[in-house]
Design a protein around this nucleic acid. Structure first.
Length: 880
RNA sequence: GACUCCGUAGCUCAGAGGGAGAGCACUUGCUUGACAGGCAAGGGGUCAGUGGUUCGAUCCCACUCGGAGUCACCA
């Protein structure tokens, strides 16, 4: 089925091009995985965006890369599944919903758990639709029939299954430990949800009195308010300064509690005073020391960061208020004797920004070591996950090697509720996939799981697992490539790998492509507070999705950050417009021409042979680089092929037959034009889906949509080195002539005769065959091509390999200027000759360098010597 | 403290063991029947520095300087 051609407007308008196109694709089900057994599956799962807001440029970047891969693979004949979905994003979403409630003067507690969750689900639906609309505008070819959400029934089942299994294996446990507490959102956090920032603080030096003694012991702290919970002072057992105090008792100032001085090797004698106050309920190290010495744990804060009843008169005060007050009080008592300014690392909550409090609390944990070890070991096997760029593998491994247990319980409502029940009377714990039968006697754990606990299962939970016979899981897992930013390697990539290894025995993806961050034009991170964020939808409104996509794909190299610059998007628009107009030209010349009319077996012109050769090279290059995820490299290569080779040379050369009246030649040229443009559009389609589909539909084509057209393959029969060499000579001649013309101020009259003196008769014949090109591009009055030409006295000249060009320009030529120009040229060739000869004179080079390189240099030497001699001779003539 | 990345044209960035590239900006000339958001011709870089490996280094290695980041940590 072939279609006839249509006309295009003279300017590329992305709105017209993109309008309704996505609907056409979705309605045509071009993006749906077919399960076709004839085809090999190729799978990508989208990193599920949070349902908290709109997508930003980072998402646009990330998903565009996936779309590019998916589209190419689809065209290469794979059964592509690109599975979309979203993440419930526990803390983030709950915070947004609470914010919304607050605006209405309500809190989540006013609503109660059930009602609150209902509101959250409504929120989710609303934002999910925003996100889908944005995917649409970006042109992402995802399979909506398989869209998933982390709180879906199926995924929740997977979560419960994983939790219960790990619990049964002893890899999940519940216990009272020091965790990172966010007093603002009132939940525990995992280690990586804490961001450490250098913060100006103070170092407070205290003297704790020794009981029944005049002596005091000097300790220093950055968090004096925690002293209310001190239950010991620790020194190093070998510390001569304090040896005699070990076992003695300290009377804790203000509190009056008597606490022991203990010896512990973990104390650093060099740091501070060498004596440490021990607060097991508010510091991870102190907690460990406390365990070793059987110390009491006294919690002095509430969940909201205010002091509790154990803080005595400070009860009810905010922790930082308390700090101020306690400093005053200690100072008054003479306990505090020095305050130093101190820059130290303070942990902040990734979500709320609140200062994280190390806090004693009962939480659920994943025992990481066995899981991490298995994942590390997998990297030595054939199930290795390949990182692109490779260096991120080291970062990943380093993290796993030093991993600590993962605190997975969160004091939130929005999320997967922990499948643990506590017996109301016996306090017995039940962990199971389903609630206990005598549910009235049990109470379920109030907490939910860390969002990342469910995202860690994403590559398989979305495909029907834990049902291992699920059709999609069987066919599409493991996935082929994951695309994500380096900022979530720990949060997500690593966790998917170890969970996948543990539960499926396989890697979750073969490759992982890591990209950087999007920055503003000045290189700053885009952030709300700076107000320097750019909405991808604004970019699309202005320049179209294709321009945005191409900019994102080619703007950086894997693993590097990307600066957003409007000028670059604009430059990409120019490129799109170029393609648009080249296509417009093609359509104007393909009136009545159909896909079936394409016939490349005819008598091809030099231009035809050359462009087909270049097309082959481009196909090879673009395919290879896209396969390696080198989109920048592939995109630039395509850009150069399209703009420089196809538009600037091929189309211009094709105008000769197209505007001529030889119908046979015209048909051949139309065939090549239609074919090359078709192949270009196909290769460009993964990068710029909209414009390519639009043009392709209008060109002679076969098939319903370019999305399912076959990816171009190299056609060896069109590889023609001779044509490439001839073209090179031709281009050199044309450029030389243009060059000469640029030297002459006044326009050159058409009366001029252009003379080309060739080295041998073969070249004469060759150039005679290509005469029409020379006539069109150089536009001389007369063109003489011969082995010997009569060189007029007043002429400008140029040398190319195998030939010498003369342009007699009586009256226009300034002999002195021409001499100066030629002298410059002579200098250039002389330099080249020297460089090459020096190289060839080096025995080591000739003996050790690869033969091909040496031969190449020898050929250059010959060529340069020849040119040098010709220029020299011409100079002599002029000077005579 | 450990590790990673970056330093190439005025700007933003590619690149590759064998004569330095692109886009934008700049200069000059063009209403050339696809495109003036275009065409053509140009100018502009000791590829941060110092050593080393090599026949050959801007590219590989070491160190130094400058910029960015990740992880860990001392109370």
């Amino acid at each position: 089925m072939s279609k006839n051609t249509q006309r295009l407007p003279s300017k590329y308008n992305p709105h017209d091009v993109e309008k309704d196109r996505y609907k056409f694709w979705v309605d045509g089900k071009f993006f749906e995985a077919t399960g076709d057994k004839e085809k090999e599956p190729f799978t990508i799962v989208i990193p599920p965006p949070n349902v908290t807001g709109k997508l930003h440029l980072g998402h646009a970047w990330d998903t565009t890369m996936q779309d590019t891969i998916a589209r190419m693979k689809r065209m290469q004949g794979y059964d592509v599944l690109w599975l979309p979905g979203m993440d419930h994003a526990g803390i983030a979403t709950q915070a947004k919903v609470e914010e919304k409630l607050q605006a209405e003067g309500k809190s989540r507690h006013d609503l109660g758990r059930e009602k609150f969750l209902q509101v959250a689900w409504e929120w989710k639906e609303e934002y999910a639709q925003f996100i889908r609309n944005q995917w649409e505008k970006l042109g992402l070819g995802v399979d909506y029939s398989r869209e998933r959400f982390t709180l879906d029934e199926g995924l929740s089942k997977a979560v419960r299954d994983v939790f219960v299994t790990l619990y049964e294996k002893g890899l999940i446990y519940r216990g009272e430990y020091i965790i990172n507490w966010d007093p603002q959102t009132k939940t525990a956090l995992s280690d990586i949800e804490v961001i450490y920032k250098e913060t100006n603080g103070q170092f407070y030096h205290l003297r704790y009195p020794i009981k029944d003694s005049e002596e005091t012991i000097h300790i220093a702290t950055t968090r004096p308010e925690t002293m209310l919970g001190d239950t010991a002072v620790a020194v190093h057992p070998d510390d001569e300064r304090y040896k005699h105090l070990i076992g003695k008792t300290v009377v804790l100032p203000i509190v009056g509690r008597e606490i022991e001085i203990v010896a512990d090797e973990s104390v650093d004698m060099e740091f501070g005073s060498g004596a440490v106050k021990i607060t097991p309920a508010h510091d991870a190290n102190d907690f460990e020391i406390g365990n070793r010495h059987g110390l009491e744990r006294i919690l002095v804060m509430n969940e909201d960061g205010t002091m509790n009843e154990n803080a005595g008169k400070y009860a009810g005060m905010d922790r930082f208020e308390c700090r101020k007050q306690i400093v005053k009080d200690l100072e008054a008592q003479g306990v505090l004797f020095k305050i130093e300014d101190h820059v130290h690392q303070v942990g902040y909550s990734e979500r709320s920004g609140a200062v994280v409090e190390p806090y004693l609390s009962t939480q659920w944990f994943v025992k990481m070591k066995p899981l991490a070890e298995a994942a590390i070991k997998m990297q030595q096997s054939s199930e290795k996950v390949h990182f692109f760029p490779e260096r991120f593998e080291r970062i990943y491994l380093h993290w796993l090697e030093n991993i600590r247990d993962w605190c997975i319980s969160r004091q939130l409502w929005w999320g997967h509720r922990i499948p643990a029940w506590y017996h109301k009377e016996t306090n017995e714990i039940y962990v199971g996939r389903e609630a206990p039968e005598d549910i009235e006697n049990w109470e379920q754990d109030e907490d939910v799981l860390d969002t990342w606990f469910s995202s860690a299962l994403w590559p398989f939970s979305t495909m029907g697992w834990p049902d291992e016979d699920a059709v999609d899981f069987q066919r599409y897992f493991p996935t082929d490539v994951l695309v994500t930013g380096y900022d979530i390697i720990f949060f997500w990539v690593a966790r998917m790998i170890f969970q996948s290894k543990e539960f499926t025995g396989r890697r979750p993806f073969k490759d992982v492509l890591i990209h950087g961050l999007i920055r503003d034009a000045e290189g700053r991170k885009m952030s709300k507070s700076l107000g320097n964020g750019v909405d991808p939808m604004d970019v699309i409104d202005k320049y179209g999705a294709d321009s945005l996509r191409y900019f994102l794909l080619t703007g950086s190299t894997p693993g590097q950050d990307l600066r957003f610059q409007w000028e670059k998007v604009e430059a990409t628009w120019n490129f799109a417009n170029k393609i648009w107009n080249a296509s417009r030209f093609a359509l104007m010349n393909l009136e009545g021409f159909t896909y079936d009319d394409i016939d490349l077996t005819g008598d091809l012109s030099l231009a035809d042979k050359w462009i087909l050769t270049r097309l082959n090279e481009t196909i090879e290059h673009v395919t290879r680089n896209t396969d390696k995820y080198e989109f920048g490299e592939a995109g630039r290569n395509l850009y150069n092929f399209i703009w420089d080779d196809f538009c600037d040379w091929y189309i211009e050369m094709a105008k000769i037959p197209l505007y001529g009246d030889d119908e046979v030649k015209k048909q051949t040229t139309r065939s090549v034009l239609a074919h090359v443009l078709d192949q270009i559009l196909r290769m460009l389609h993964p990068f710029m889906p909209f414009i390519t589909e639009e043009i392709w539909q209008k060109l002679p084509h076969e098939g319903e949509s370019i999305t399912v057209a076959q990816w171009p393959v190299v056609q060896e029969q069109f590889h023609n080195e001779k044509a490439a060499a001839e073209m090179e000579r031709l281009v050199s001649i044309i450029k030389s002539v243009r060059n000469i013309r640029a030297e002459v101020d006044t326009p050159i009259s058409k009366e001029i005769t252009m003379l080309i003196q060739c080295e041998n008769n073969d070249i004469v014949k060759e150039l005679e065959n290509e005469r029409h090109y020379l006539e069109r591009f150089c536009n001389p009055g007369k063109l003489v091509i011969a082995e010997e030409v009569n060189v007029p006295e007043k002429a400008m000249s140029a040398v190319v390999t195998g030939a010498q060009i003369y342009l007699p320009l009586e009256g226009l030529i300034d002999i002195d200027k021409e001499i100066a120009r030629l002298e410059k040229e002579l200098e250039k060739w002389t330099k080249e000759v020297e460089r090459v000869q020096k190289k060839l004179a080096n025995e080591n080079f000739v003996n050790k360098a690869p033969q091909a390189i040496v031969d190449e240099e020898r050929a250059k030497e010959k060529d340069y010597l020849d040119k040098q001699a010709k220029v020299k001779a011409r100079l002599a003539e002029l000077k005579a």
